[in-house]
């Protein structure tokens, strides 16, 4: 029986080899990393570049008349050329390069956001773990989170009597709600299986927190952190308009008061790009940290 099987196997082997030959040319192109990179670049970078160019041209046409209230892109570039080429310019008082304005804003965000992340995860863990903490705190959180960021500013100015800590507090109070709420949801959704494992092993509270709770809730926590960083950046620009000093928000307000429309437009580009990069940074950290937490 085995003797009669052997030839059949031998006959089918050459037929099977046809398949790798057929895909060989395609795999040669796929395996070249440079060509692949170029192809990838073309398909992902080209569409937004074309869209951007189209919008710029449209804007140029619409605002081309000399009495247009908003300057066209060509005039924006011409009028802000000094700011574009020298972002590291150091001058007197608030007369600084755009890099320093953005850096000042980022410093405030970093501080307020870090505090919000630490406090938010801790409070979220409490609310997620304890039924009573949830019943007591959740309604308060739900009301407070709807308060617009700037509405906190007068109160914090009264409390801190200084612009800078007030701005940091506004960041903190803006970013903390999504972090609390998402952490709590993540912890409430920890599968019963993991809890049973923890109970059989008799993990103590601290071990349970570090070994089970944080990793299991990490995807939720990072969702909260990502929403939080976006809100922080929204809030800082608005808060800085009111508190003054060095910062991209005040730069915009200052430009408005001196009717420098082109400066405002350039600053908006900076705000948008930095906000985008912040979001991407948190998303990248999330991807690294939670790459192994997908349940299976």
């Amino acid at each position: 029986m085995s003797a009669s099987e052997a030839p059949i196997v031998k006959e089918t082997k050459p037929m099977a080899k046809v398949v790798p030959l057929a895909i060989a040319p395609r795999s040669a192109r796929d395996t070249n990393p440079f060509l692949k990179w170029i192809a990838n670049l073309g398909s992902h970078i080209l569409p937004p570049v074309i869209t951007l160019l189209f919008l710029l041209v449209l804007w140029e046409i619409i605002c081309s008349s000399p009495d247009a209230s908003v300057p066209p892109p060509s005039r924006v570039v011409a009028e802000t050329w000094e700011l574009i080429v020298d972002p590291f310019y150091v001058g007197q008082g608030v007369d600084q390069g755009l890099f320093w304005h953005v850096l000042a804003s980022l410093k405030r965000v970093a501080l307020g956001y870090s505090l919000a992340a630490a406090a938010g995860i801790a409070l979220g863990a409490l609310v997620g773990r304890s039924e009573w903490a949830m019943r007591g705190l959740d309604p308060i959180f739900q009301v407070l989170r709807t308060v617009p960021p700037l509405a906190w500013l007068p109160l914090s100015l009264a409390a801190f009597k200084d612009g800078n800590p007030s701005a940091i507090f506004v960041i903190f109070i803006t970013a903390i709600w999504p972090i609390i709420i998402n952490t709590a949801v993540g912890i409430r959704n920890i599968p019963q299986d993991y809890q049973n494992v923890a109970r059989v092993l008799r993990l103590n509270q601290f071990e349970y927190f570090t070994r089970i709770m944080l990793p299991a809730a990490a995807p939720y926590i990072f969702t909260g952190l990502r929403i939080g960083i976006g809100l922080s950046w929204l809030a800082i620009v608005a808060a800085e308009m009111l508190i003054g000093g060095v910062g991209i928000g005040f730069f915009i307000w200052d430009a408005w008061n001196s009717s420098r429309m082109s400066d405002i437009i350039l600053a908006l580009v900076y705000v948008g790009v930095v906000g985008f990069l912040l979001d991407r940074a948190i998303a990248a950290i999330a991807r690294i940290v939670t790459r192994n937490t997908a349940s299976n």
């Binding site: 299986d193 049973n196 494992v197 059989v200 937490t293």
Partner: peptide, 19 residues
């Protein structure tokens, strides 16, 4: 109370995916 003297092999293995 649950404890390691009565170890359970769960139906769906219950391994921690991040370890």
């Amino acid at each position: 109370l649950p404890g390691p003297d009565r170890a359970v092999v769960f139906q769906n293995h219950s391994l921690l995916p991040w370890l």
